[in-house]
Structures are given as C-alpha cells and as structure tokens.
Design a protein around this nucleic acid. Sequence first.
DNA 1: AATGAATGAGCATTCATTCAT
DNA 2: AATGAATGAATGCTCATTCAT
Lengths: 219, 219, 219, 219
Amino acid sequence: MTTQVALNPLKGRRQRRMARRRREIMDAAACVFAEQGYAHATTRAVAAAADIAEGTLYNYFESKRDILLAIAQRAEAEVNALLDETERVESVEAMVALVERGLQLLLRNLPFTRTLWMEAWTDDEILREFGSAWLQVLHARIERFIEEQVALDLFRPVNPALTSTMVLGLVFAPIFPVLRGIVPPPTPEALHGIAEAAVDLMLYGLQAREAGHVGAVPR
Amino acid sequence: MTTQVALNPLKGRRQRRMARRRREIMDAAACVFAEQGYAHATTRAVAAAADIAEGTLYNYFESKRDILLAIAQRAEAEVNALLDETERVESVEAMVALVERGLQLLLRNLPFTRTLWMEAWTDDEILREFGSAWLQVLHARIERFIEEQVALDLFRPVNPALTSTMVLGLVFAPIFPVLRGIVPPPTPEALHGIAEAAVDLMLYGLQAREAGHVGAVPR
Amino acid sequence: MTTQVALNPLKGRRQRRMARRRREIMDAAACVFAEQGYAHATTRAVAAAADIAEGTLYNYFESKRDILLAIAQRAEAEVNALLDETERVESVEAMVALVERGLQLLLRNLPFTRTLWMEAWTDDEILREFGSAWLQVLHARIERFIEEQVALDLFRPVNPALTSTMVLGLVFAPIFPVLRGIVPPPTPEALHGIAEAAVDLMLYGLQAREAGHVGAVPR
Amino acid sequence: MTTQVALNPLKGRRQRRMARRRREIMDAAACVFAEQGYAHATTRAVAAAADIAEGTLYNYFESKRDILLAIAQRAEAEVNALLDETERVESVEAMVALVERGLQLLLRNLPFTRTLWMEAWTDDEILREFGSAWLQVLHARIERFIEEQVALDLFRPVNPALTSTMVLGLVFAPIFPVLRGIVPPPTPEALHGIAEAAVDLMLYGLQAREAGHVGAVPR
DNA sequence: AATGAATGAGCATTCATTCAT
DNA sequence: AATGAATGAATGCTCATTCAT
C-alpha cells in the first residue's frame, strides 16, 4: 500500500505528461497534415514538428493513421460539445451567435479543420469519424426548424431538406477559402458580420410574404 | 507525292487513335484518383483501369502528375466554354437554366470533378490550373449582378462580395454530397428543382421590401 | 529461272543496301556509346542518331548488345589487317611508321575505340572479342623483338615480357587523353612526333652501352 | 551533467559504428561496381554485398551515385596524402620507392581503383573528383623534373610534356592488366622489380650520352 | 523493310514501422 | 520512455524488345 500511495501521484503526473505529449503530437501532426496533405506528410516530418524522435510517435499512437483518427475524434468531440449546449435556438440573436460560434470553432484550430475536411473527402472512415455525425445533427436540426416555421406560416412552403442543405452551404461558404488557406482568417468583427449576413439572407429568403420575386430581375 | 497521299490517312488514323487513348487514360485515371485520392492511387492501378501496360502511360503523359494536370486543364476548358457562352443573365428562367447547366456539367464527369476538388484542396498548382480562374470569374459576375440590382433598388443594400460567396455556397451545397459519393446523383428533374430552389432562395433573400425579418423567429 | 535472273541484281542491291545501313547504324551507335557509355545509352538515342525508327534496329541486329559486339568485331578486323601487313619491323623508320599507323587507326574512328576501351574494362566478352587478341599478338611480337635484340647484345639484358608491357604503355599513353575526350586529336604532324618520340625513348632506354644511369639524378 | 557524461559514450559509440558501417558499404559497393560496372550494378546487389537492407543504404548515402562519389573522394584523399609527403625525389632509390608505393596504393584497394578507372572513362564528374587532380599534379612534377635534368645536360633535350606522359604510361602499364582483373596481383617482390624496371627504362631512355640508337635495329 | 506504340521486367528511392540500445 | 538506425514492401518511372500495321 505504501508504494501505491507513493506511486499514485507519480502515476498521475506521468499520465498527465503522456496526455499532454499526445496533444502536442496531435497539434504538430495537424499542422503538417494541413500543409502537405495526410498522404504526402511523412512521420519523420511529424516527429520533427513535435520535436521528438520518430520512434517515440509509436509510444503514443498505433500508427500514422491513428494520429489522424485521434485528431478527428477530438474535433468531433469539440463540435459535439457545442451542439449539446445549444439544443434550441430562441431568437435571431441566438441564431447569429450560434453560427458565429460554429465558425469560430472551425477557424480556431484551422489545421485540424483543414486536415479533416481534406481527408474526409476521400476517406470514408474519417468522414464517419468526424464529419458525418455532427453535420447530420446540424442538418436535421435546421430541417426541423424550417418545418416548424413553415407550419406556423412564418416561412414560405419550401422543401425543408433541400433548404437545410442550402443554408449550410450559405453559412460555410465564407470560411471555405480561409480553410483552404488562400484568404487570411477574418477578424472577430468580420466573423460576426459574416454570421449576421448569413442569418439575414436565410431569414429574408425564407420569410413568408405576399410579393414574389419575379420583378427582381429586370426585363 | 503518291506516298504522301497514301501515308496521310495512316498517320491520321494513328493520331486519332492516340488522341482517343489519351482520353481513355484520363477517364480511367479520374476514376481511380476519385476513389483513392491522387497520392494513394498508383500508376499501376491507373494502367489497370485503362487496361494498358504501365509503361504505356508514359507514351501519353510525362508523369503521373501530368495526367492530373491534363484532367484539370480539360475540366477547366469545359467550364470556361460554359462561362463564355453565358456572359449575361437576362431573366429568372435564364438564371435557373445557367445554374442547372453548371451543376449538370460538374455532375456529368463526376470522377473528374471529385478528383479536382480533392486535389485542389492541398495542391496549389491544381487549384490555379482548375479551380481558381472560373470560380473567380463566376464570383465576379455574381458580385457585379448584385451591385447592379442594389443600385436599382431591386435588392437590399448588402455587401456584394460576401453575398456573392454565400450565393455560390448556396448553389453548390446540394451537389456537394453527390460529389463526395455519399448521395446518388439527382435525376434531371431533381436537378432542375435544385436550381429553381437555389435561385428562388437567393432572390427572395436579396429582394428589397419593407418588412424586416425579426418576427420570423418567435421570441 | 527468269525471275532468278531478274531478281539477282535486285538481291545484290538489297544486300548492299542492308550492309550499308548496318554500317550506318554501327557508326551512329559508336558515337552515342562513346558519349554516354554503353549502359547509359538508350536504343532510342541510337535509333535517333541513325535516323531510323527504334524497331528498325532489330532488323539489322539481334539486340543492343549485338551492336556493340559488331562494333568490336569490325574494329578487331581492322587492327588485325594492320598487324597482318606488318609481320616484321626492318628499320627504325619502319618502326616509327608502324606505331604511327597504329595510333592513326585508333584515332580514326575515335568513337569506336573509345566505346570499346570503356566496355572492355568491365565486359569480358568485349575484351575477348576486341582487345585481347590483337593486343596479345602485338605484345608477343614486341617481346620477341626485344629477345632477339638482347640475344644480339644490341639491347641490355632486360625482362622481355615486362619491358614489352611498358613499351605498350609508353606508346599508348599520349593518345589516352585523346580517347578520353579531354584533349583534342593531334594533327598528323604531332602524331608523327609522338611516334618518333616513343620509339626514340624505347630504343634509347633499351640500347646496350657501358655507363649506368646512376649519375643521372643529382645528389 | 551526469546525463551528459553518461550519454557521450553512447553517442560516440553510435557515431563510430555509423562511420564503420559507411566504410563497409563503400567497400562492398566498390567490389560490386568493379565487377559489374556502376551502371549495371543494382542497389540491391550493393546492399546484399554489404549484408544490409536496401533502405539502409540511404541512411548513409544520399543516392547510389553518392556512394560512387564518396569512393572517389576517399581514393583521391589517399593519393593526395602520398603526393604530399613526397614533394621531391632525391635519388634513384627514392624514385623507385615512390613508384613502388604509388603502384602499391592503387593495388591495395583494387576494387576502388578499378571502379574509378572505369567510371572516369565516361563520367566527367568522377574524372574531376578522382582522376584529374592528382594525375595532373604528378604529370606536372615529372615534367618539371625532366626540364631540370635537361637544363643540367643530364637528360637529352626532349619534349618534357610529351615525355612526362609517356613516362606515366610506362609506369602504369604493368599494373593495367591487374586492375582489369585478367592478371593476378604481383607479389611485393615482383612489384619492386616493376618499379625498378620502370625507373631504369626511363632513366636509360632519357640519359644524355654520345652515341645515338641507330645501330640498335639491325639491317 | 520500316514504323513506333505497347509491353512489363527491372530499378532507384521512399517511408511507415520495428526494435536493440 | 526515448531514441534513431534498420527494415523491406511499395512506387513512379525507364527502356530493351516485340509486333501489329
């Protein structure tokens, strides 16, 4: 027992150190993957970025692919946390805030997002692990919201599924070039503007009213 | 002179056969790249898909990368052709038709589009070769259209650049999962519906009118 | 029979044309081999140098290696012809003339000589085919000559075999850098001077006389 | 500090082991190259000869070619060391000893010499890296020696440059067939005899004296 | 006989993973 | 736990040779 008592804090410190090291490796790997692409990035480069020996990687991860999966799971967890705390949108301001926080989340760990977006495009497991679940939840939630509004005659009678997809596209489009790395990240104010504009366009576009839009395009 | 006349058809046939074979290789390569990703796809697999020997690839292309670039250029050319013939949109119907044809074009050679989208995400040269030019033209054209409509008081006073980006996102979003391969391609009718819905949402969302949208979301 | 009579001149012309083409290919190949080395030279390059299609090579030679062997045999034949016509050296002038003609022969088809020298260094078959026979004949002849002179007390009592080797080295040394391509070919006059100097050094060095050479190096 | 002290021997041992391994690879490679020629030799064969995996080669050398260059540099360094320690020849015995040691050096690492001789014949970089420098130094030194002796009337008035070349040929000729591998290496005694005979022939051939050599060839 | 596209074995090199230290 | 040298399967590409035209 004595040893246990003596060891416990040591074990705890060790475990914390290993957890910290794991995160460091994931951060480094995300940067390397984001820059070169997962397939083209070498474990040597990842190890160098994490400032450890190549072999040490394998004390923390089963394989190169395992690092990618860990990154996906961590990102998934963060996004899920956001989704969990905002089950329902109660006002326009809340909606704007939600969109803003979502975009913030994606931008905060740009390398993670970029890597995952890239890999999810070819790799079904990554897609399942990272992109699929929360995107579907989000999609379903928007869809349900539209259905409700339509039922209340507050929105025009649109196809809820299709519209939900378009709303997602509309919201993500502005940060797409940022994820790609061809446009610098927006300032917090710009991001707020983006969120407002997106919600604005969506609500205006869906809102029920009398006049059609035929007159909008001249001639 | 006789020999020249006699030789010409032979050379012509050969050249046609080589041109055809080049296209066949590009088609096969696009499929393989789309399935496995460019980096992970092997020249061996490409050759097998094209049903030729590995070495034969190099009679038609300088390198594996050259195949990818050729694919990018061909796709770029097709998209440019579409952009060239539709300089200006004159009516809602024309706008719907343009969107529909654009989406059709992307879907027609699914493997090409998928491959390029994927690679453009990491590879700057591919992005330049394929995605950048026409996307920017399209973006600029939409932006100008919005500016004009705003000047005529037919659209609300919005940020034209940001709105243009969101419109693009809105339009492409529905075929995104199709390109990814997790949703089957839409029927022609469905595609028409998508184009209509996208234009509809955009015009409704931008149209000038009195009432705001605050009331749309309860409480 | 009529056809035979009619065909014969045709056959003769054909055969002559094929023989000519064979030589052209060998010339072209020797140049390419000399420049790039046999192993590094491609059949494509040889065909291009001979201004024919790649496949045509194989109507005249069994393989790439066969071209090399043919080159070796042709060179061997030429050298043998020279050796045959000069069985015995009768005077200093004749000796100078023989050396001069030998060096001339090596230099005349520089590409051939260069190629063969190079390949004979690694390839035992080429060595046998080209370098070995005539070199041994030459060596034996010089050796016999020295033995005779020693027997007549005209040469000092030296080791005939070793001395023969050194004489060969002494004679070939001046054109070695030319074969290598780092020194331009000598003019005919310079070549004559080389032959004279070589014979001169040899005879002076071997001639019997009273005084030793100890005093030659001061101190 | 303790760790430093403890680590140093480990690092030292590792470095020594790597240096040793590098030499082993070079030795093995020289043998393979000497037997098959650089171009024809495969990295697989080199690795097998060094009894390591193919990939391990690349922990020690950048490329196959880099191995060859390393061999050239090492040989160059050894020859230069010999040249450095014998700036001037003071007696016949010293001259014989120098020639003997030079030939010994070439024969000691037969595979190295053979490989380099072979490759220098086609490869300009190898020629520069290995053969050119020391050979030119040697040539210049012999030339200067002859000039001095001629000025002292101890040598006949000969062309110093041409004679220097012939002397080099005369000296190297006896070990040429050994380098080629068609004659077994000479015993130390035989090598001494070769050096003596070469110096002897050279001095006798150049020594000033009254009688010409015309009478040497009968009739 | 001439052509040149097709072939596929062969090669240098890379890199994820292992393991002795 | 950390290291980094060793491994060898995998890959893009070459090129001598074949063969249909």
